[in-house]
Design a binder for these strands. Structure first.
Lengths: 175, 175
DNA sequence: CCGGGCATGTAATCTGTTACATGATTGA
DNA sequence: TCAATCATGTAACAGATTACATGCCCGG
């Protein structure tokens, strides 16, 4: 699923502006990916041209004008199609793994430091995910909750995995 | 760690051609990422200009000429620096998660099918990783083996995680 | 008075893939 | 004879990020 389909997904619940879409995205997928305005606004423009969404300018006073996007029936159809498409598994590019691969070039202390640093970064992310819980539980349906729990378990697993590497590094009889 | 550093990593063991570098990469990181000639050759050219590597043309008969790249001391230094750099944790972009998030738009059967399809793709990848074992054990040092085991556990964990989602979908009292 | 939230957008840049172009050798 | 392996490279495209540009309102 590309950006477009994801935006359509959010729009199929309610009409939103580009600004609001970014927020939804941040809340729902914060721990997996982000989305910048630089990709949202052009995508919306394109989708308007393709008649997957319609746009309505709302003039506000005391606040900047907003462009509210509404999904069309063609948009709904495209979204459902995208959901059903067979998907290709994308390999995550794991920067830790690349480093670990070349750990022989570091001293035992540097190895320990690098691995621990990584572990702490993961734990910090995990804390953030947990802090997000109330926000997510507020508006999520059954599947969106599954999504959240999937994310939690995912980080739990990687943390365990990295911990195991650290343990192995400790046991390793230095060089 | 970017491509350049990774290439330097391989070159710090022995001099290699672009063609060989791709192979190394494929064996070592096949299950995490690939690298195409379209990025390797330009990267090598750039690194030559930056004097991180030197190049030597080897004329062969009966086979195409090859350009063997050798790391320089500046290259070694740059590589070690890159290894030590503090790293930012990159979120994996999980396409399954994005779909799961919008599963309410599919029928119970379609949900089951999508989830199982994903599970099977993961299991297939896992099989491939396991099949790679002898090739990796042949030339890997302690850390590179750790890397391999990390990969195995990683897939094992995701498979368990997705299985749990499937179980939850089954228990879910349809709509 | 300053930072943050609201709100939209563009341009430059980066990083990488895919497809194309070339061409000899070897083994089934 | 057909596919695979060896071997290098470019050009077009894709997908996204970052930084920039603009500007008002509100709360501390």
């Amino acid at each position: 699923m590309d950006i477009k389909s994801t935006l359509l997904g959010f729009l199929s619940r309610q009409s939103l502006t580009g600004y609001e879409l970014k927020k939804r995205f941040a809340i729902s997928f914060s721990f997996f990916s982000g989305l910048s305005y630089g990709s949202i606004y052009p995508a919306l423009k394109k989708m308007e041209k393709e008649e997957l969404v319609t746009q309505k300018l709302e003039i506000q006073d005391g606040a900047p004008n907003r462009k509210v996007y509404t999904i069309t029936s063609a948009g709904r159809k495209a979204f459902i199609e995208a959901l059903k498409e067979p998907f290709h598994w994308e390999m995550p590019k794991n920067t830790f793994l690349t480093r670990l691969f070349f750990f022989a070039h570091l001293s035992p202390e540097e190895r320990q430091a690098a691995a621990r640093e990584h572990l702490e970064a993961l734990q910090e992310t995990q804390r953030q995910i947990k802090a997000f819980r109330p926000k997510i539980e507020a508006g999520a349906d059954f599947y969106q909750l599954q999504c959240y729990h999937f994310g939690l378990r995912f980080y739990q697993d990687i943390i365990r995995n990295v911990s195991e590497v650290i343990r192995a590094l400790e046991k390793q009889p230095d060089e």
